[in-house]
Design a protein around this nucleic acid. Structure first.
Lengths: 114, 114
DNA sequence: GTGATTGTCAAGTGTAAACTTCAGTATTTT
DNA sequence: AAAATACTGAAGTTTACACTTGACAATCAC
């Protein structure tokens, strides 16, 4: 594993959920779904200061949900698949467990006298 | 649509994310993955009071992630698919948008002179 | 250069919410 | 009936965090 290939630490699902727990941050994410945005571009429709947006972006980046890079004086933000993959995995895990339970239930119902 | 078939209001994704934003509540959910539990059964491994667990359960139920019913003096809690379906849908929506973007990118790269 | 745009940092405020305590209500056990 | 079990409700505390202000840094436009 080349160290140069590990820019961000492995996703902490804790951070992901905390990040998504805030409505403003989800609003930011849904804006980023359309296309990458600058910080002020993201701030415009939200009724909060630029500073607040920057703080939200920090949380989203630490969660691996957003990636950004600064070119000149403008920071361009885009969605980062990493966090979403982790989230998807968590949901999948939850679902798989109880589908297994349903399968067992189905087996029992299917063979009532086994 | 029979009114008797609509026991809980439609899922509010806002509540779902808020509910999952707390580590203790996710711990509760992961315990419920194994099998249904009583309130005190859930409280045992957590280092908080029974009251706190009850409060967390209220949040989880309002989010449609947990369903419970009281029989005698014991309340039995189990996972509720409704909230998880809504969550899954949200993740899917997010992912689909940017995969469409990747498709467009792929199309452009595939036909550089179209 | 001057001035406008774009963002960052440090420090403070205010509120939501996670948790506690304590008192109370049903149920089950003996 | 008395005691234990399993919760529930009201009210207070304390911490976390969303947001602001104000000062500053860097880049672009003129």
């Amino acid at each position: 594993m080349s160290p140069s290939k590990m820019p961000q630490s492995p996703i902490d699902i804790n951070r992901v959920f905390h990040a998504l727990g805030d409505p403003t941050r989800r609003a930011i994410i849904e804006r980023l779904r359309d296309h990458p945005q600058s910080v002020s571009g993201l701030a415009a429709p939200l009724r909060i200061t630029l500073t607040a947006v920057t703080q939200h972006l920090k949380v989203l980046e630490d969660a691996g949900l957003v990636h950004s890079e600064k070119t000149g004086r403008v920071r361009t933000c885009r969605l980062d698949p990493a966090g979403f993959n982790a989230l998807d995995q968590w949901v999948r895990d939850c679902r798989s467990t109880w589908e297994r339970r349903l399968d067992r239930l189905g087996a029992i119902l299917g063979e009532p006298d086994a």
